[in-house]
Write a protein that binds this DNA or RNA. Structure first.
Length: 237
DNA sequence: TACCAGGTGACTG
DNA sequence: CAGTCACATGGT
């Protein structure tokens, strides 16, 4: 493996511009309301969005589209609605825990919750059972529109493959790599995470498709795969 | 067919 | 604190 390098703020912006040119704006989060962002953020945990979207439709059809209704619903009813998203027992409990939090402490409106300062909001979210760091940051950024850079499996994998040095192995370490180098800017955080996610899902997959990658010349792993990709291109003639 | 997908909490040494 | 495991459906 090539030696890790310490990426400059300029390099982070260069990667952003490359991804933006490659994919265009992604218009995240794919939801019509802060409520839907939160529900979607829980349902998409370790799950692809394409199975979450049907689950959201089933929740609407089952009249489970407010915190009060989620809280009042019988667990098997909620489970059946969210079944397509997987992990339905755990996610049903998580939705009920969050509903209880919003109904009992913020009168059923996440708007009151979002009035908290960013760091306080994040801590309150982390205090809810089932809300971990990524889901909390999803909610802070995409529902409350406050600046908290979202980290996820894709982003960590891309950082590792690019060969960027990270101070540790934890979520916060990877998150800090970005937040210490980028201006604190909600639209930038929003689009950056969306673009990295798209790249992770389509190009920098578990089995990376380095041929044609817009970051190829910036990537330690991609350069290492040059021969292999050249062969696979040749094979397709 | 076997592997993988926008994590989190519980448990162990 | 760091590693490991269960949780579960659906697409390729």
């Amino acid at each position: 493996m090539p030696r890790k390098t310490n990426p400059s703020p300029e390099l982070l912006m260069q990667v952003y511009e490359r991804l933006l040119a490659d994919q265009g704006p992604r218009h995240w989060w794919p939801a019509e309301s802060p409520f839907e962002v939160i529900v979607g953020a829980v349902l998409t945990q370790n799950t692809q969005w394409r199975t979450v979207s049907p689950a959201l439709d089933r929740m609407k059809a089952a009249d489970l589209w407010t915190w009060e209704k989620i809280l009042a619903a019988k667990t098997p009813v909620l489970v059946e609605a969210i079944r397509p998203a997987g992990y339905f027992n755990g996610k049903a409990r998580k939705l009920k825990e969050f509903a209880s939090f919003v109904v009992n402490e913020f009168e059923g409106s996440q708007d009151a919750l979002f009035e908290l300062d960013t760091s306080v909001l994040r801590e309150r979210l982390l205090g809810v059972w089932g809300i971990g760091e990524e889901t909390a940051d999803d909610i802070v950024l995409y529902a409350a529109n406050k600046p908290s850079f979202v980290m996820d499996k894709y982003t960590m994998r891309i950082v590792d493959r690019l060969g960027w040095r990270v101070s540790g192995k934890k979520y916060a370490d990877y998150q800090r790599l970005f937040s210490e180098r980028l201006p604190v800017d909600v639209p930038l955080y929003n689009e950056y995470h969306a673009l990295v996610d798209g790249h992770g899902a389509k190009v920098c997959r578990t089995q990376p498709k380095c041929a044609g990658c817009c970051l190829f010349d910036l990537c330690a792993t991609g350069k290492g795969n040059l021969g292999q990709n050249a062969l696979s291109l040749q094979g397709r003639g």
